[in-house]
Protein backbone atom coordinates (compact mmCIF):
# COMPACT_ATOMS: atom_id res chain seq x y z
CA UNK A 1 0.00 0.00 0.00
CA UNK A 2 3.01 2.27 -0.52
CA UNK A 3 4.40 2.68 -4.05
CA UNK A 4 1.19 2.48 -6.04
CA UNK A 5 -0.93 5.09 -4.37
CA UNK A 6 -2.13 6.42 -7.74
CA UNK A 7 -4.16 3.27 -8.24
CA UNK A 8 -6.29 4.22 -5.26
CA UNK A 9 -8.02 6.90 -7.37
CA UNK A 10 -10.91 4.59 -8.30
CA UNK A 11 -11.62 3.36 -4.79
CA UNK A 12 -11.28 6.92 -3.51
CA UNK A 13 -13.76 8.27 -6.08
CA UNK A 14 -16.21 5.54 -5.00
CA UNK A 15 -15.76 6.39 -1.29
CA UNK A 16 -14.52 2.81 -0.90
CA UNK A 17 -11.51 3.69 1.27
CA UNK A 18 -11.29 3.89 5.04
CA UNK A 19 -10.53 7.13 6.86
CA UNK A 20 -6.77 6.54 7.05
CA UNK A 21 -6.49 5.82 3.35
CA UNK A 22 -8.68 8.78 2.55
CA UNK A 23 -6.40 11.10 4.48
CA UNK A 24 -3.29 9.60 2.89
CA UNK A 25 -4.74 9.86 -0.58
CA UNK A 26 -5.88 13.44 -0.10
CA UNK A 27 -2.34 14.30 0.94
CA UNK A 28 -1.14 12.68 -2.26
CA UNK A 29 -3.76 14.57 -4.30
CA UNK A 30 -2.41 17.88 -3.07
CA UNK A 31 0.89 17.02 -4.76
CA UNK A 32 -0.20 15.02 -7.81
CA UNK A 33 -1.84 16.93 -10.67
CA UNK A 34 -2.48 13.74 -12.66
CA UNK A 35 -4.47 12.16 -9.86
CA UNK A 36 -6.39 15.40 -9.24
CA UNK A 37 -7.70 15.45 -12.79
CA UNK A 38 -8.37 11.73 -12.77
CA UNK A 39 -10.25 11.91 -9.49
CA UNK A 40 -12.34 14.84 -10.72
CA UNK A 41 -13.39 12.83 -13.74
CA UNK A 42 -13.95 9.61 -11.83
CA UNK A 43 -16.04 11.45 -9.22
CA UNK A 44 -18.17 12.89 -12.00
CA UNK A 45 -18.44 9.38 -13.44
CA UNK A 46 -19.36 7.82 -10.10
CA UNK A 47 -22.08 10.42 -9.58
CA UNK A 48 -23.65 9.26 -12.83
CA UNK A 49 -24.26 5.88 -11.16
CA UNK A 50 -26.96 7.69 -9.20
CA UNK A 51 -28.91 7.98 -12.46
CA UNK A 52 -29.75 4.31 -12.11
CA UNK A 53 -31.37 4.90 -8.72
CA UNK A 54 -35.04 5.89 -8.70
CA UNK A 55 -35.61 9.43 -7.49
CA UNK A 56 -37.39 9.68 -4.22
CA UNK A 57 -40.59 11.26 -5.46
CA UNK A 58 -42.33 11.35 -2.11
CA UNK A 59 -40.78 14.13 -0.07
CA UNK A 60 -40.97 13.36 3.67
CA UNK A 61 -43.31 15.76 5.44
CA UNK A 62 -41.60 18.83 6.84
CA UNK A 63 -38.17 18.06 5.37
CA UNK A 64 -38.23 21.08 3.05
CA UNK A 65 -39.31 23.52 5.76
CA UNK A 66 -36.86 22.13 8.32
CA UNK A 67 -33.94 22.23 5.91
CA UNK A 68 -34.63 25.75 4.65
CA UNK A 69 -35.05 27.02 8.21
CA UNK A 70 -31.86 25.30 9.33
CA UNK A 71 -29.92 26.75 6.40
CA UNK A 72 -31.27 30.23 7.12
CA UNK A 73 -29.56 30.20 10.48
CA UNK A 74 -26.37 28.43 9.37
CA UNK A 75 -23.45 30.72 8.46
CA UNK A 76 -21.84 30.12 5.09
CA UNK A 77 -18.21 29.57 4.26
CA UNK A 78 -16.80 32.37 2.15
CA UNK A 79 -14.45 31.49 -0.70
CA UNK A 80 -13.15 33.53 -3.60
CA UNK A 81 -14.73 31.44 -6.30
CA UNK A 82 -13.56 31.56 -9.91
CA UNK A 83 -16.26 32.16 -12.48
CA UNK A 84 -17.39 28.77 -13.61
CA UNK A 85 -17.83 27.38 -17.06
CA UNK A 86 -20.56 24.99 -18.04
CA UNK A 87 -19.72 21.47 -19.01
CA UNK A 88 -20.50 20.56 -22.58
CA UNK A 89 -20.92 17.17 -24.10
CA UNK A 90 -23.56 15.57 -26.20
CA UNK A 91 -25.42 14.07 -23.27
CA UNK A 92 -26.40 17.47 -21.94
CA UNK A 93 -27.48 18.44 -25.43
CA UNK A 94 -29.68 15.41 -25.71
CA UNK A 95 -31.23 15.97 -22.33
CA UNK A 96 -31.94 19.59 -23.16
CA UNK A 97 -33.35 18.61 -26.53
CA UNK A 98 -35.62 16.04 -24.96
CA UNK A 99 -36.84 18.45 -22.37
CA UNK A 100 -37.51 21.01 -25.07
CA UNK A 101 -39.29 18.44 -27.20
CA UNK A 102 -41.48 17.10 -24.47
CA UNK A 103 -42.16 20.53 -23.02
CA UNK A 104 -43.41 21.52 -26.46
CA UNK A 105 -45.65 18.44 -26.52
CA UNK A 106 -47.03 19.20 -23.12
CA UNK A 107 -47.83 22.80 -23.91
CA UNK A 108 -49.69 22.12 -27.11
CA UNK A 109 -51.10 18.93 -28.55
CA UNK A 110 -50.97 20.61 -31.94
CA UNK A 111 -47.24 20.15 -31.87
CA UNK A 112 -47.76 16.45 -32.36
CA UNK A 113 -50.31 16.77 -35.10
CA UNK A 114 -47.98 16.14 -37.99
CA UNK A 115 -49.77 15.13 -41.16
CA UNK A 116 -47.91 12.01 -42.05
CA UNK A 117 -49.43 9.44 -44.34
CA UNK A 118 -47.34 6.68 -42.84
CA UNK A 119 -48.18 7.53 -39.27
CA UNK A 120 -51.83 7.88 -38.37
CA UNK A 121 -52.75 9.87 -35.29
CA UNK A 122 -50.94 8.79 -32.22
CA UNK A 123 -51.50 9.70 -28.65
CA UNK A 124 -48.99 11.84 -26.84
CA UNK A 125 -48.12 8.90 -24.61
CA UNK A 126 -47.40 6.73 -27.61
CA UNK A 127 -45.28 9.44 -29.22
CA UNK A 128 -43.43 10.02 -25.98
CA UNK A 129 -42.65 6.32 -25.74
CA UNK A 130 -41.34 6.24 -29.30
CA UNK A 131 -39.26 9.33 -28.67
CA UNK A 132 -37.82 7.83 -25.51
CA UNK A 133 -36.89 4.66 -27.41
CA UNK A 134 -34.98 6.56 -30.07
CA UNK A 135 -33.27 8.88 -27.63
CA UNK A 136 -32.46 6.06 -25.24
CA UNK A 137 -30.90 3.96 -27.99
CA UNK A 138 -27.27 3.09 -27.28
CA UNK A 139 -26.11 4.61 -30.55
CA UNK A 140 -28.21 7.80 -30.44
CA UNK A 141 -26.42 10.82 -31.91
CA UNK A 142 -27.41 14.45 -31.81
CA UNK A 143 -27.41 16.92 -34.70
CA UNK A 144 -28.18 20.50 -33.95
CA UNK A 145 -28.59 23.66 -35.95
CA UNK A 146 -30.22 27.06 -36.40
CA UNK A 147 -31.81 28.71 -39.39
CA UNK A 148 -31.08 32.21 -40.64
CA UNK A 149 -34.04 34.34 -39.70
CA UNK A 150 -34.62 32.41 -36.46
CA UNK A 151 -35.55 28.98 -35.27
CA UNK A 152 -33.64 25.87 -34.36
CA UNK A 153 -33.65 22.20 -35.13
CA UNK A 154 -32.44 19.23 -33.14
CA UNK A 155 -32.29 15.75 -34.53
CA UNK A 156 -31.50 12.71 -32.42
CA UNK A 157 -30.79 9.79 -34.72
CA UNK A 158 -30.37 6.11 -33.91
CA UNK A 159 -29.16 3.85 -36.70
CA UNK A 160 -30.06 0.88 -34.55
CA UNK A 161 -33.68 2.02 -34.22
CA UNK A 162 -33.57 3.27 -37.78
CA UNK A 163 -35.39 6.39 -36.63
CA UNK A 164 -34.69 9.95 -35.61
CA UNK A 165 -36.47 12.37 -33.32
CA UNK A 166 -36.85 15.79 -34.94
CA UNK A 167 -37.50 18.92 -32.89
CA UNK A 168 -38.19 22.12 -34.83
CA UNK A 169 -38.58 25.27 -32.80
CA UNK A 170 -39.72 28.74 -33.81
CA UNK A 171 -39.10 28.64 -37.54
CA UNK A 172 -40.03 31.82 -39.46
CA UNK A 173 -43.63 31.85 -40.65
CA UNK A 174 -43.88 29.88 -43.90
CA UNK A 175 -46.36 32.41 -45.33
CA UNK A 176 -50.10 32.31 -46.01
CA UNK A 177 -51.34 29.02 -47.45
CA UNK A 178 -47.95 27.40 -47.00
CA UNK A 179 -46.44 24.78 -44.70
CA UNK A 180 -43.11 23.25 -43.78
CA UNK A 181 -42.43 19.76 -45.08
CA UNK A 182 -39.78 17.35 -43.77
CA UNK A 183 -37.51 15.25 -45.96
CA UNK A 184 -35.04 12.44 -45.65
CA UNK A 185 -32.44 12.73 -48.36
CA UNK A 186 -30.77 9.47 -49.42
CA UNK A 187 -27.24 9.14 -50.76
CA UNK A 188 -28.72 8.43 -54.17
CA UNK A 189 -32.23 8.92 -55.52
CA UNK A 190 -35.10 11.24 -54.70
CA UNK A 191 -35.82 12.88 -51.34
CA UNK A 192 -38.39 10.96 -49.28
CA UNK A 193 -41.09 13.02 -47.60
CA UNK A 194 -41.08 12.46 -43.82
CA UNK A 195 -43.92 14.65 -42.61
CA UNK A 196 -45.89 17.82 -43.27
CA UNK A 197 -46.55 20.44 -40.62
CA UNK A 198 -50.04 21.92 -40.41
CA UNK A 199 -50.24 25.08 -42.53
CA UNK A 200 -48.51 28.02 -40.86
CA UNK A 201 -46.99 25.98 -38.03
CA UNK A 202 -43.46 26.91 -37.03
CA UNK A 203 -42.79 24.35 -34.29
CA UNK A 204 -42.93 20.56 -34.36
CA UNK A 205 -41.72 17.39 -32.69
CA UNK A 206 -41.91 14.08 -34.45
CA UNK A 207 -40.19 10.82 -35.25
CA UNK A 208 -38.89 10.20 -38.77
CA UNK A 209 -37.48 7.14 -40.48
CA UNK A 210 -36.29 4.78 -41.79
CA UNK A 211 -32.78 6.14 -41.97
CA UNK A 212 -31.06 3.51 -44.10
CA UNK A 213 -28.92 5.28 -46.73
CA UNK A 214 -30.11 8.67 -45.52
CA UNK A 215 -27.37 11.29 -45.65
CA UNK A 216 -29.28 14.43 -44.69
CA UNK A 217 -32.47 15.74 -43.16
CA UNK A 218 -34.18 18.63 -44.89
CA UNK A 219 -36.99 21.10 -44.35
CA UNK A 220 -38.73 22.84 -47.21
CA UNK A 221 -41.39 25.50 -47.56
CA UNK A 222 -44.27 24.14 -49.65
CA UNK A 223 -47.92 24.77 -50.49
CA UNK A 224 -50.16 23.80 -47.58
CA UNK A 225 -51.04 20.45 -49.19
CA UNK A 226 -47.40 19.44 -49.49
CA UNK A 227 -45.34 18.58 -52.56
CA UNK A 228 -44.15 15.23 -53.95
CA UNK A 229 -40.60 16.65 -54.05
CA UNK A 230 -39.05 19.58 -52.20
CA UNK A 231 -39.28 22.84 -54.13
CA UNK A 232 -38.08 25.46 -51.66
CA UNK A 233 -35.50 23.95 -49.31
CA UNK A 234 -34.93 26.20 -46.31
CA UNK A 235 -32.67 23.95 -44.29
CA UNK A 236 -30.44 20.95 -44.67
CA UNK A 237 -28.84 19.02 -41.84
CA UNK A 238 -26.15 16.52 -42.85
CA UNK A 239 -26.31 13.35 -40.74
CA UNK A 240 -22.65 12.51 -40.41
Amino acid sequence: MSGDIHTLAGAYALDAVDDLERTAFERHLAACETCRLEVAELRETAARLADDVPDNAALPAGLRERTLALAARTPQERVDSPTGRRLGGWRQWVAAAVVAAVAAAGSSAVTWALVDRNQPDRTVAEQTRRIAEVIGAPDARVFQGTIDGGGSATLVASAQRDQAVVVLRDLPSPGTGRAYQLWLIPTTGAARQAGLLPGGDTTATTVVGPLVDVQAFGVSNEPEAGSPAPTDVVALLPLE
Partner: peptide
Protein backbone atom coordinates in the same frame (compact mmCIF):
# COMPACT_ATOMS: atom_id res chain seq x y z
CA UNK B 1 -41.70 5.77 -8.33
CA UNK B 2 -43.69 7.30 -11.17
CA UNK B 3 -42.61 10.76 -12.21
CA UNK B 4 -45.11 13.52 -12.68
CA UNK B 5 -43.26 15.19 -15.44
CA UNK B 6 -43.03 13.45 -18.78
CA UNK B 7 -39.96 15.50 -19.59
CA UNK B 8 -38.22 14.38 -16.45
CA UNK B 9 -39.21 10.80 -17.08
CA UNK B 10 -37.79 10.85 -20.57
CA UNK B 11 -34.50 12.50 -19.74
CA UNK B 12 -34.09 10.41 -16.59
CA UNK B 13 -34.68 7.36 -18.71
CA UNK B 14 -32.04 8.51 -21.15
CA UNK B 15 -29.56 8.91 -18.30
CA UNK B 16 -30.46 5.58 -16.75
CA UNK B 17 -30.20 3.64 -19.97
CA UNK B 18 -26.85 5.17 -20.74
Amino acid sequence: VPHDQVAEAVSARLDREQ
